[in-house]
Design a protein around this nucleic acid. Structure first.
Length: 567
DNA sequence: GCCGTTTTCGGCCCGACTGTTTTCAGTCG
């Protein structure tokens, strides 16, 4: 059974949004958001604890959450859903368009969607409207485009959770599947997913069970071998029943990618064979079908890990038996970018360190924000206090080396928070962009290069600063940045947060070719986030990284030597 | 709505940026 925390947090966030749109007190809005964050970040399942004991939750929210746990909703949420028009909510999904403007556009001009807004702008209906100058209209158009370009795809975290949920539900049926697995872009570890493909060997009752799930809003297709449903998040799920003897062939076929599959079929054809989702055949004779390994072996290839199946050179490498040894989750020995409640995390230093030890890390860096990000209210004194606390904590963890780090803010000119002599007191220095996202390409490139050239900076955090579905990547000459990183020994981060997924795998691949090394970090702001590193590993695998490319796959001694070397 | 070495009321991370405003409103992190 999935944790109830995420669903409850989502309901509270929705309530906060509706409450704000309804003109509610901003401080109460913050309370709901804070409670949602605390719930989502709580290590224990809500059903196992007293909700009232979670910090940030008082009597009023506890009652709402308890009602939510009992029946999947609460009275006040139902009331606000009925009161706030969907059109207003849809408008606020447009970046740069907040609640005030949404309400105004809806009430005064009857605009209730991104499409309607685009039409109104095209028709010149916003001309002369108070507060709607040309720049504002341009920004709205850019926001609409940003919303459209996400094209119904969601980040991998959402798709992964949903796929796990479907597999768990079907596995719990009276006649469970003999085999079940997800395929498609989800199995290839793509950073965004357009639909979820699930393969199963089992009875047609599985398809009925899927259609009956509460998150299914529409049945798109329902046949003997395939059921397609749409879910409340707009994501489509395809469930396909395949014959047990064709399992491997079906997995290959439905995992794709398309170009990879085309290459495989061409190789089969050249041997006088045929490859389909039912197997590899010579005429009627089955050559291979039951496992993926059998099929690749019959084609004279190594089994290709799904993240590489994009026809980006892996077919040739597999034919020559020269596929790289991809970095695995188990190779990671530590985490070099994490937060505590000293800045914007929700868990204490002690809680985060204890959870990291449970994961079996052999080193762990705490990298709270630095003073330039004013909202975090950090000071050098606070950082030094934290360092002392961390040093005291070290005695409790003989098998895990605690590293004191910081996440610096890269200013518009490429400078960071502290001078070198202060930076040298930190074991790990991550530096990231948190503002001025729209700088012109040349300035942004200079900014990153300056950060790389700063001898006090070890790692550039979440380099493109994108948030999938919310914020586009910044514009920079990435090859120039990668060259600077390679030249200075500056490591680029693969931020594992599924909505960041940053660097993206295509840029990781390019950076690797230019000699850059990487760090796969959780950027955890709560205990459960520490487990997100598997998402970053997926990105690394898509870019064909090996353990040698990833500094936190290195043993402690090698890592420390690298961090100590002047860059 | 939450919280308490400012403790049961009165604060709440708050500053920067943008565009439009001639003194500020909205949005964001």
């Amino acid at each position: 059974m999935a944790r109830s925390n995420e669903a409850a947090a989502e309901a509270l966030n929705e309530y906060a949004e509706l409450f704000a749109l309804d003109g509610g007190d901003p401080f109460r809005v913050r309370s709901y958001q804070k409670a949602a964050k605390a719930i989502a970040g709580h290590p224990r399942d809500l059903r196992e604890i007293s909700v009232r004991d979670v910090p940030g939750i008082g009597e009023a929210i506890a009652k709402k959450v308890e009602e939510f746990l009992a029946r999947g909703g609460f009275r006040q949420l139902d009331a606000l859903r009925a009161k706030v028009p969907d059109g207003v909510r849809r408008l606020t999904r447009i970046p740069s368009l907040g609640p005030k403007t949404a309400l105004f556009l809806y009430r005064e001009l009857g605009i209730d969607s991104a499409e309607a807004l685009a039409d109104a702008i095209a028709a010149g209906r916003l001309k002369g409207v108070k507060g709607m100058g040309p720049k504002t209209v341009d920004n709205l158009l850019a926001g609409i485009e940003q919303l459209r370009s996400s094209g119904g795809r969601v980040h991998r975290g959402i798709a992964f959770d949903l796929a796990q949920q479907v597999i768990a539900v079907l596995g719990g049926q009276a006649s469970p599947p003999e085999r079940i697995a997800y395929a498609g872009s989800l199995r290839r570890m793509r950073e965004t997913v357009g639909d979820i493909d699930i393969l199963a060997v089992g009875s047609p009752g599985l398809m009925e069970a899927l259609r009956a799930q509460p998150f299914v809003t529409e049945v798109v297709a329902a046949g003997d071998k395939k059921t397609s449903v749409r879910t409340d998040r707009g994501l489509q799920i395809d469930l396909r029943l395949v014959p047990a003897e064709s399992w491997g062939a079906a997995l290959v076929y439905f995992t794709g990618g398309k170009d990879h599959n085309v290459r495989l079929r061409e190789i089969a054809v050249r041997k006088g064979w045929k490859l389909s989702e039912y197997g590899l055949f010579e005429g009627e004779r089955v050559i291979a079908a039951a496992t993926e390994e059998d099929i690749y072996a019959a084609l004279g290839m190594q089994w290709v890990p799904p993240p590489l199946r994009e026809d980006m050179g892996e077919v040739e490498a597999a034919l020559k038996h020269e596929l790289p040894e991809l970095v695995q989750r188990a190779d990671l020995k530590g985490d070099l970018h994490t937060h505590t409640n000293l800045t914007d995390g929700v868990a204490s230093l002690e809680e985060m360190v204890a959870a990291a030890a449970d994961l079996g890390h052999s080193y762990y860096a705490v990298t709270d924000h630095a003073p330039d990000l004013a909202m975090q209210r950090m000071t050098l004194d606070k950082a030094l206090e934290q360092r002392a606390a961390l040093e005291a904590l070290q005695a409790k963890y003989p098998r895990m080396r605690l590293l004191h780090g910081t996440e610096l803010n890269i200013g518009p000119d490429g400078s960071v928070d502290w001078p070198l002599e202060v930076l040298e007191g930190f074991d790990v220095r991550v530096a990231s962009v948190h503002s001025h996202f729209t700088q012109p390409r040349e300035e942004m490139t200079r900014r990153f290069i300056a950060a790389c050239e700063n001898p006090g900076v070890h790692i550039i955090g979440h380099p493109t600063t994108r948030k999938i579905g919310k914020r586009p990547p910044v514009d920079a000459d990435w090859d120039a940045v990668f060259d600077a990183a390679a030249r200075t020994g500056t490591v680029l981060e693969i931020d594992s947060f599924p909505d960041r997924a940053d660097l993206p795998s295509d840029l990781v691949r390019r950076a690797k070719h230019r000699g850059v090394r990487f760090s796969i970090d959780s950027d955890a702001h709560a205990v459960p986030h520490l487990g997100n590193q598997h998402y970053g590993v997926g990105i690394a695998q898509r870019a064909a990284l090996t353990p040698d490319d990833v500094i936190n796959a290195w043993p402690l001694d090698r890592l420390l030597a690298h961090l100590a070397a002047p860059t």
